[in-house]
Design a protein around this nucleic acid. Structure first.
Lengths: 225, 225
DNA sequence: CGCTTCCTTGATTTACTTCAAAAAGTGTGG
DNA sequence: CCACACTTTTTGAAGTAAATCAAGGAAGCG
């Protein structure tokens, strides 16, 4: 993988490496980066790897997670096109990152914390990404610590609907296992909760089981706890 | 409460408002701030309040938390002397802050995200605090989502021992209810887990019940999951 | 198609909660 | 300093949400 240094002298950017999503949103990356394509479940980096780069998703979904010694997993976030992840204060990545679906990312060479602070070229977007990650983490702690299974699923669906900008149908790009490991549940409970919401008429889960039709968003919002 | 603006022209700092702890640790604040003393359970700010200031603890412990509509609470973090909290990207605080014990904080006037990015006077310490908060939040999600009650308590005790720098006895400054709401448990389960750890000989809980003696740190670490 | 993977459903178990009460600790005023 | 009231913590018994164990069905794929 080739990493292009984002030297101050090279503060233009190469349109070729920009995602359509980023362009569409009027965003620019923190510098010039290298494209990396990932198959489903392919690992981008592991917990403890040296944090050489940070990343922006351009296609597909990337999950970041932590493992317990016996294999229990917590997915702290799913990253969609436009999202920046993998920014670290220290020398190492504190979680692993894998493609939750086939995905493409752009890698940007990381800078030191000192550079981040005093280098004007450091994009507000990266700091924004960090604050956004913190905000989401704090909301997610409330979910993990205090919500019931149904409330977790309802919150998750509303969240996905917002992020995927789907009118009233969400095409979930990740497996039930990924959802379970994100919400602190088992796949069985995820499945049963979805069935229960369907029985109540709040959602509809057609054949493929990957698409969720949000029948009653108000009811879903009420179930958020 | 008086807030002193941290204008670039006033980049000295007033020793009078520095905590002994901060001085002892060779730290300096991000600027000049105003001291605020809090009684136990006194509120510093509520979720949704305009984020006028951010804070540094100088004495005691401050808890930051979020509530669900029916009152269920998740304490996302306890802040000890030296810790900075309440830094926000947006206009509002996203959680409330109260004193978990009698406490003193210094309030610093917040800046806008843009200022944070391009103002050289923005302390690396504040960015450091943010990254630290994110790191802790990510570890805490793993705890909330995937650890058992005993593992949660063991992790919490090891954590407190590190942060309070107590050799092998931790004087817990917060109530069982606070601990429960931090770990996603009930007070009864917290109490039972402590009793269980005591029965196993891993800890000792003398009379006052606020001090925990860590008898077997290795065993505790093993119980972290 | 047939094979594999993913998802759902059912039966049972269990970790944790809830409800209830006792015990211990802390504070206050006489 | 003690008695009384209040708060916090512990302990016990019963209930329950979600996990685990175990098949069965569907969907996707070569």
């Amino acid at each position: 993988m080739q990493i292009v240094m984002n030297a101050p002298a090279a503060r233009h950017f190469d349109a070729a490496v920009l995602s359509r999503a980023a362009v569409a949103q009027g965003r620019r990356p923190a510098g010039v980066g290298s494209v990396r394509t990932l198959d489903k479940d392919e690992e981008l980096f592991a917990e403890g790897d040296p944090a050489v780069s940070f990343y922006r998703v351009t296609q597909g979904v990337v999950r970041t997670s932590k493992l317990l010694s016996d294999g229990r997993r917590q997915i702290d976030a799913f990253h969609f096109p436009g999202d920046v992840f993998g920014v670290e204060a220290g020398a190492e990545h504190r979680f692993s990152a894998e493609a939750a679906s086939a995905a493409t990312v752009i890698a940007y060479r990381r800078r030191d914390l000192d550079d981040l602070l005093f280098d004007e070229t450091f994009s507000r977007e990266v700091l924004g990404a960090m604050m956004h990650a913190l905000e989401r983490a704090q909301r997610h702690m409330l979910l993990l610590g205090r919500k019931s299974a149904i409330e977790k699923i309802a919150t998750f669906l509303v969240d996905m609907a917002e992020r995927l900008a789907g009118a009233d149908a969400v095409e979930l790009p990740m497996s039930r296992l990924d959802i379970a490991d994100h919400l602190g549940l088992t796949i069985e409970t995820v499945s049963r909760s979805l069935t229960e919401l369907e029985r109540k008429g709040v959602i509809d889960v057609p054949a493929s089981r990957r698409t969720i039709v949000l029948r009653d968003k108000a009811a879903l919002a009420r179930l958020n706890g």
